[in-house]
Amino acid sequence: MTAIETPVLSRARSQVLDAGIGLGEAELVEVLRLPDDQLEPLLTLAHEVRMRWCGPEVEVEGIISLKTGGCPEDCHFCSQSGQFSSPVRSAWLDVPSLVEAAKQTAKTGATEFCIVAAVRGPDQRLMSQVAEGVKAIRAEVDIQIACSLGMLDQAQVDQLVAIGVHRYNHNLETARSYFDRVVTTHTWQERVQTLRLVAAAGLEVCCGGIIGMGESLEQRAEFAVQLADLRPDEVPMNFLNPRPGTPFAGLPVLAGRDALRTIAAFRLAMPRTILRFAGGRELTLGDLGARQGMLGGINAVIVGNYLTTLGRPAQSDIELLAELKMPIKALSTTL
């Protein structure tokens, strides 16, 4: 502990680092309002919390879009919505391409491969293709398979369990109080219902969102606490990359220091959760920010490209982890 540590960081050291209990909403607002000269102590504490309650290992994941574009929902950040004039067009990926993508992901050292589809929820065609793809991948690649297919019913959850899917991603995107500013074609509660079905079925829950969509600091704190209440296994941390043709195309890119404060705040809200670097980090943080994030609470990364935007080269992330002496989580520990 340093002499200049602020009261909220002192409380966090006692409550989160020592006892493993996440901060509440009011304290997280204090964290998000810390001045720039407190950013380094904040990141240092968040890293200490990560190391104590999660350890040094980093989980590496690749993602692939099975069905791109043409989504009927109006998520205002998303270039895959069929309601906006964005340049993304509808397309399907075949099973051999899925298998090849999984192979390339595994070569990076990744232990997780996520199949994503731009849909409100899967129809029978999509569920059949996912089942075929998972079977083919499992026959050729030693990797865990996750899915992100929108909102599910009980029968679809049961089918994913039966074919061996290990984790399901369904982001809440933002705080409940801000959700209708981001999406109007479905509700926050509908998303929560899918997450509850997934958790009850024994699948790992992956649930995060996007920071920098015009929400207030209070709503970022609200969002962190709402995520913590769901007890997700993993929280992907995306930062808005404003996409042409979407309602959020004109929003400013989040400042790097605000992104780092948010990462640390989420770590102090969820000391035991996997926090994963996801979309937008390259634009918001750059190479230096990637290093600071890994030393400020992050303990998982998506390598390579995202669904409709470019990411960092996979090798760059692998080399950074080696430099920081953060081992890639072994597949055997995730089985």
Score class of each variant (00 low, 15 high):
residue 7 P to T: 11
residue 15 Q to P: 10
residue 15 Q to Y: 08
residue 17 L to I: 10
residue 19 A to N: 10
residue 26 A to I: 06
residue 27 E to N: 13
residue 27 E to L: 10
residue 30 E to V: 09
residue 31 V to T: 08
residue 32 L to A: 12
residue 34 L to S: 12
residue 37 D to Y: 06
residue 37 D to P: 03
residue 39 L to P: 11
residue 39 L to N: 07
residue 45 L to I: 00
residue 49 V to H: 06
residue 55 G to C: 06
residue 62 G to E: 02
residue 63 I to C: 11
residue 65 S to H: 07
residue 67 K to T: 12
residue 71 C to H: 12
residue 76 H to F: 13
residue 78 C to Y: 13
residue 78 C to S: 04
residue 79 S to E: 09
residue 89 R to S: 08
residue 91 A to P: 01
residue 96 P to G: 12
residue 104 Q to M: 14
residue 105 T to I: 02
residue 108 T to G: 00
residue 109 G to R: 03
residue 110 A to D: 05
residue 111 T to G: 12
residue 112 E to S: 06
residue 114 C to L: 02
residue 115 I to K: 07
residue 118 A to G: 09
residue 125 R to F: 05
residue 126 L to A: 14
residue 130 V to G: 05
residue 133 G to W: 07
residue 135 K to Y: 06
residue 137 I to G: 04
residue 138 R to L: 15
residue 144 Q to R: 15
residue 146 A to P: 05
residue 146 A to F: 02
residue 147 C to S: 11
residue 149 L to H: 04
residue 163 I to V: 15
residue 165 V to Q: 02
residue 165 V to Y: 01
residue 166 H to A: 09
residue 173 E to Q: 07
residue 174 T to E: 13
residue 175 A to Q: 06
residue 178 Y to Q: 14
residue 181 R to G: 03
residue 181 R to V: 00
residue 182 V to T: 10
residue 182 V to Y: 07
residue 186 H to D: 00
residue 190 E to R: 15
residue 192 V to I: 12
residue 197 L to G: 05
residue 198 V to H: 15
residue 199 A to F: 07
residue 200 A to Y: 08
residue 201 A to K: 14
residue 202 G to T: 04
residue 217 L to W: 02
residue 219 Q to T: 07
residue 220 R to F: 08
residue 221 A to T: 08
residue 227 L to D: 07
residue 245 G to W: 06
residue 254 L to R: 13
residue 255 A to L: 15
residue 257 R to G: 02
residue 259 A to F: 08
residue 259 A to N: 13
residue 260 L to H: 09
residue 261 R to Q: 05
residue 262 T to A: 09
residue 262 T to W: 02
residue 266 F to S: 03
residue 270 M to Y: 13
residue 272 R to V: 09
residue 272 R to C: 07
residue 281 R to C: 08
residue 283 L to R: 15
residue 284 T to K: 13
residue 285 L to W: 13
residue 286 G to N: 11
residue 296 G to E: 08
residue 300 A to F: 00
residue 308 T to R: 00
residue 308 T to S: 07
residue 308 T to H: 11
residue 317 D to I: 03
residue 318 I to V: 15
residue 322 A to T: 04
residue 326 M to F: 03
residue 333 T to Q: 02
residue 334 T to K: 01
